[in-house]
């Protein structure tokens, strides 16, 4: 599988090679249609979709990085998300109160400041779990020369085991972080934004920018891109590929865990099955952006998020995952290599 990272660290996004005037015409037509739809759309849904897209993006970027460097579809990614969410729950619900740290209603948010303390610990748990599982399991399979299908299969086993473990510890009932109901912000165009969404957006933006800086400015980030590009050359160049793999898991697991916490905040609930369910929008975003291309995944995430939310204007909201799935199928028919794939180097 070719990995397409050439968009990373590029100067300016240029039109891809396959772009023809017909594409321009189609884009303009699409824009006109979009402008036509716009007045009908509930802007509120669009805005919610952007926030949902932010959460999807955090998961999808990590998933795409893992895909690019380890070359397999990690179906346990959603369960790395709930790992973070439940560890954060443990901190907020049990551990922090034990230390006398309790607090409700931080500013306009539904949650208190304990969540801000719990969030990094959730991320840490996700990263550590991902690294530990790599060292204990995936690394041994790699050394044995296992192929990508075996690694994906193993990730399915891990997905089940992680969820089972979460159910043993926290049960299968619906949990939630402590909440205080809050006023929503009213914006023009009948847009209502729950303050929590702004928090989610800020966290997502900070993390996405950090990942970008990491990949383009740091030695380890560049080594990650080099390894994804050409694993054999990375080895003979002296890049410590095992460390690159651990860094990838740390970022992927950490981002997933934070996405899990944010998902639990935005849905006001926490359930073990949430992670597995979230795989569909995650993978849809990754496919949309081109497998292995983290920037594509970012764009894909927002497209998926907005479409999922906007679709609820016409169809039953519980079909949202099916909508993500449908977009993915249409995408596979129209541009199988993803929005940005296809012209990558050898």
């Amino acid at each position: 599988m070719t990995v397409r990272w050439q968009n990373i660290g590029g100067k300016l996004p240029r039109l891809p090679r396959w772009w023809t005037p017909a594409h321009t015409a189609a884009a303009v037509a699409l824009l006109v249609v979009a402008l036509g739809i716009l007045p009908v759309l509930k802007m509120s849904l669009v805005v919610n979709g952007v926030f949902l897209g932010g959460i999807i993006a955090l998961g999808a970027i990590g998933l795409s990085l893992v895909f690019g460097i380890l070359n397999f579809a990690n179906v346990a990614h959603g369960d790395y998300m709930i790992t973070g969410a439940y560890v954060a729950f443990f901190f907020i619900d049990s551990f922090l109160p034990l230390l006398g740290i309790e607090g409700q209603g931080l500013g306009p948010f539904t949650f208190g400041y304990p969540l801000l303390i719990a969030l990094p610990f959730g991320a840490l748990a996700g990263a550590v779990a991902a690294i530990a599982l790599d060292s204990l399991i995936y690394r041994r399979l790699r050394l044995r020369g296992a192929n990508a299908a075996v690694l994906a299969m193993t990730s399915l086993g891990l997905a089940i085991a992680i969820r089972g473990l979460a159910q043993i510890i926290w049960g299968t009932q619906v949990l939630s972080y402590p909440r205080e109901s809050r006023q929503v912000f009213h914006l023009p165009l009948d847009v209502r934004i729950p303050p929590d969404s702004l928090f989610i957006a800020v966290v997502a933006i900070i993390l996405v920018v950090s990942v970008y800086l990491l990949l383009t400015r740091t030695r380890m980030g560049k080594a990650m891109r080099a390894t994804a590009d050409n694993p054999d050359l990375a080895l003979v160049t002296g890049i410590n590929t095992q460390r690159v793999i651990w860094a990838t898991w740390a970022i992927g697991g950490g981002l997933a865990a934070i996405a899990g916490v944010l998902l639990a905040v935005s849905q006001a609930q926490l359930l073990p099955i949430m992670g597995w369910k979230f795989l569909i929008p995650l993978f849809a975003a990754v496919v949309l952006g081109g497998i292995g291309n983290p920037y594509g995944a970012l764009v894909g995430a927002f497209i998926i998020g907005v479409t999922m939310e906007v679709s609820t204007q016409w169809i039953n909201p519980s079909y949202k995952p099916a909508v993500a799935f449908a977009i993915m199928i249409v995408m596979l028919l129209a541009r199988p290599r993803g929005l940005f794939g296809g012209s990558g180097p050898g």
Binding site: K222, R225, A226, G238, G344, P345
Partner: peptide, 26 residues
């Protein structure tokens, strides 16, 4: 002991400078 392979001997998606930086990884 450094090695230049016959094919695929650069990191195609990295910049020239980044390729050299990777060469200095150790």
């Amino acid at each position: 002991l450094c090695y230049v392979p016959q094919a695929a001997n650069i990191f195609a998606s990295l910049s020239i400078r980044e390729n050299l930086e990777m060469g200095a990884f150790l």
